[in-house]
């Protein structure tokens, strides 16, 4: 497992040009934009960067050789989840440091607990992205991954638009203001809700990992 993590880290370090550009944009953004955007931007790009190691493994039939190294097939999948979670934690941590640096330098007043809570609330989103993308990237070739991701996000968009239309129709028929009902959640203690969302995202990640392990075990190289 250690070898897999070192390999993935080396792949990240080999994307120096992209990393430098990414860090530069992150610093510029942190001093010019909404602070919550910085956290989501850095964490999202960081998650995608860590996931890109899968397509690097795919290049030049790399999987065949990787599977001859001293790991079990399932270890490869587990290693990807470990690396993604570690990567997300690092990028998210860095983004928070930048966010607070930006607050101090610009002299903005902020509520520490509220800001941190908002940052923590972003994590399940990235865990969800990783849970969806890792099995897709492991299952398909990079060319097919693009098609599958396009289809996936297309379906998500259709569901979102369909849901919005449905909500509008229900609102018209029943006369209940759903949006104002949701606003009532502001007065509810957010902690159980956040913990619930976290628990769901962790369960999703665990299920995703089981699927990825099965994909690797059935695969021929």
């Amino acid at each position: 497992m250690k070898g897999l993590l070192v390999k993935d880290f080396k792949i990240l370090m080999n994307q120096k040009k992209f990393m430098i550009m990414f860090v530069f944009v992150a610093i510029v953004l942190s001093f010019s934009m909404d602070s919550s955007f910085i956290v989501s931007y850095i964490s999202m790009i960081g998650t995608i960067l860590t996931l890109s190691t899968i397509s690097f493994d795919y290049q030049d039939e790399g999987y065949s050789f990787l599977m001859t190294l001293p790991i079990r097939r399932g270890d490869y999948a587990i290693g990807k989840y470990a690396f993604t979670v570690l990567g997300l934690a690092c990028f998210w941590g860095v983004s928070i440091v930048l966010q607070f640096a930006s607050f101090f330098i610009q002299g903005h007043e902020f509520d520490l607990a509220e800001t941190l809570l908002a940052d923590i609330c972003l994590l399940p989103l990235f865990i969800f992205v990783a849970a969806v993308l890792i099995p897709i990237e492991i299952k398909f070739s990079p060319e097919k991954v693009r098609v599958v991701m396009f289809l996936f996000f297309g379906i998500v968009l259709v569901i979102a638009m369909g849901g919005k239309a449905l909500l509008g129709t229900l609102q018209d028929k029943t006369g209940i203001e759903f949006v104002s009902k949701l606003e009532a959640l502001d007065s509810v203690n957010p902690l159980p809700l956040i913990m619930g969302v976290f628990a769901i995202s962790v369960i999703m990640l665990a299920v995703s990992m089981i699927i990825s392990i099965r994909i690797m075990e059935k695969r021929e190289f």
Binding site: Q59, E61, S64, F65, P70
Partner: peptide, 15 residues
């Protein structure tokens, strides 16, 4: 697997 060393013709460490 540590007892086996492998060199494949068309696959290896990433270039």
């Amino acid at each position: 697997k540590k007892q086996i060393g492998t060199a494949l013709s068309s696959s290896g460490f990433n270039l």
